[in-house]
Nucleic acid binder design. Structure first.
Lengths: 238, 238
DNA sequence: ACCTGAACACCGTTCAAGT
DNA sequence: ACCTGAACACCGTTCAAGT
C-alpha cells in the first residue's frame, strides 16, 4: 500500500526516546516507586520503554547492575552535612536518619544496599561524609572504617524491616492500616502462648509489638553512636 | 502385558516416603545448604522429592511459608544459655554469636529472617532466651523489647553481609579466595578514586577493605550491648 | 553500534481431574 | 484427603538476524 497524501510516512512511530542507561534507570525507579523492587524486572522495565528485555543488555550488564545503578541514583537524594567538629555525633545521627528517610521513600530499595560494597559515586559520597564527620570528631581510622559498615548495615536493616510489609501489600495508605492490624494479631498470638515456655514473650507482648515508629531506629542509632564516641581518645579494642 | 512370574507388581515404584511438611522442610534445607536460598524453589524441592510443585501446596501454603518453616527449623540448632545474672552481658553476646554462627552455617537463610516477626516455636525460644537474660540483668522491659529487635536486626544483617558473595558464587573453599580477590580489587578502586572528592575513602582504603572476619561483628555487638547495659538502673529515654 | 524476536531454561500458583 | 499434569502468567539471559 502506498502512503495516502497528507499523512507523514512513519519513521519512529511514537518518536520514542533512544535507550540509554539513564533512561533505563529512570524508568526502573518509576516502577520501583509505584510497585516495589520485585516489580522492577528487566522485562517490565523494557515493556515500560516500549521495547523487549533484550534491548536493555546493550546499556546494562544485567539485573544486578541495574539494581545497583538504581540504588546509586537514589543515594544522590541524600543531603550531606557540612562538618562541624563540635557537633559530629549529632551530625552523624542526622546523616543516618536522612539516609534512612531517602531509602524508605523508595519502597524496598534498601534490599539492594545490604551486603553491597558501595562503588557508585553517590554511595561513595555518603560514605565519605560519614568518614569526614568521624575523623573531625577524632574517631580513630580503624574504628571509623568499622563504624561505616556497622552504621550502614543498621540503616539498611531498619529500612528493610519498615518496608517489608507495606512492599508486599499493594502499598498506599491502607497498607499501614493492615500492618497495624497484623501487629494486633501478633500481640494476641504472643499473649496466647504457653506462659511456662515463653514467660517473657507473654509478659512483654505489648512492648514487643509496639510499632515504635522511628523510636526504635533512633534508639539503636543512639547506642551505636554512643559506642563509637567511646573510642575517641581511647585505646583501640584488642 | 501381564506381569512375568517372580516380579512383584509395582505399587509405589521407589516406595517413596509420603509427603509431609517435615519432609518438605528437610528437603528444602538440603537444597539450601547445597546451593543457597535461591535454589530452594517450590519446583526444585518438589523435583528432589520426585513429584511436582503442585503437590507441596497440600502441606505448605506457598513459598513464603516454606521459607519461614526453614528458618524456624534452623533456629532449632541455636544452643540456648542457662541464665546467670552475673554474666548477662557476656551471655547475651554469646547468644548473638551463636545465632550468627547457626545462620551463616545455612548459607543465606538470614535473608528470610530480616524483617520477619518471629512466630515459629524455635525462633520464639531464642527471643525468650534473650529477654530472660536482659530481665535477669535488670534491663527495663521497654528497653529489652527494643533491644531484641535491634540485636536481631544486627545479627541478621551481618549474616547476610557475610554470605552474600559466597552464596552468589558456587560456594565451597574457592569462593573465599574469590572474595578476597574481589576485596583487593575494591581496595585498588578506592585508592584510584579522585582524592579531592573522596579524601577519606582514598586515605582509608586499607581499613575499609579489611575483611575484619568476626571482628567487625563483635565490634558492633560490643557497642550495642554496652548501650543496652547503660539503661540498667537509668531513666528510660524520653 | 544498537536493537529486535524468538528461544531456552526456568519461576509460583491454580485448577480440574484422578485415586 | 492427597496427589497429579497441565496450564497460566510470568522470570533473566542469550543469540542470530536485522538496520
Amino acid at each position: 500500500m502506498p502512503t495516502p497524501p497528507g499523512r507523514k510516512p512513519r519513521k519512529a512511530a511514537p518518536a520514542r526516546q533512544p535507550l540509554s542507561q539513564d533512561l533505563i534507570v529512570d524508568t526502573a525507579i518509576r516502577v520501583l516507586d509505584a510497585e516495589g523492587l520485585e516489580a522492577a524486572t528487566m522485562r517490565r522495565v523494557a515493556q515500560e520503554l516500549g521495547t523487549g528485555a533484550a534491548s536493555l543488555y546493550a546499556h546494562v550488564s544485567g539485573k544486578e547492575e541495574l539494581r545497583e545503578l538504581m540504588l546509586d541514583r537514589v543515594a544522590g537524594e541524600v543531603r550531606l552535612p557540612v562538618p562541624d567538629p563540635a557537633r559530629w555525633q549529632e551530625q552523624l545521627k542526622e546523616l543516618a536518619m536522612e539516609t534512612h528517610r531517602v531509602l524508605t521513600s523508595h519502597r524496598d530499595i534498601a534490599q539492594v544496599s545490604i551486603g553491597l560494597i558501595p562503588t557508585g559515586s553517590n554511595l561513595l559520597s555518603v560514605a565519605e561524609a560519614q568518614l569526614a564527620l568521624m575523623r573531625a570528631g577524632g574517631v580513630p581510622p580503624r574504628i571509623a572504617a568499622l563504624a561505616v559498615d556497622t552504621l550502614g548495615m543498621f540503616v539498611d536493616a531498619d529500612a528493610i524491616e519498615g518496608t517489608i510489609y507495606s512492599a508486599r501489600l499493594n502499598g498506599g495508605a491502607e497498607a499501614m492500616e493492615k500492618f497495624i492490624h497484623y501487629l494486633g494479631e501478633i500481640r494476641d498470638f504472643f499473649k496466647a502462648l504457653p506462659a511456662d515456655r515463653y514467660p517473657n514473650v507473654v509478659a512483654m507482648a505489648d512492648e514487643l509489638t509496639e510499632t515504635g515508629g522511628d523510636a526504635r531506629f533512633e534508639f539503636g542509632l543512639d547506642i551505636l553512636i554512643r559506642g563509637i564516641a567511646s573510642y575517641v581518645d581511647a585505646p583501640e579494642p584488642s
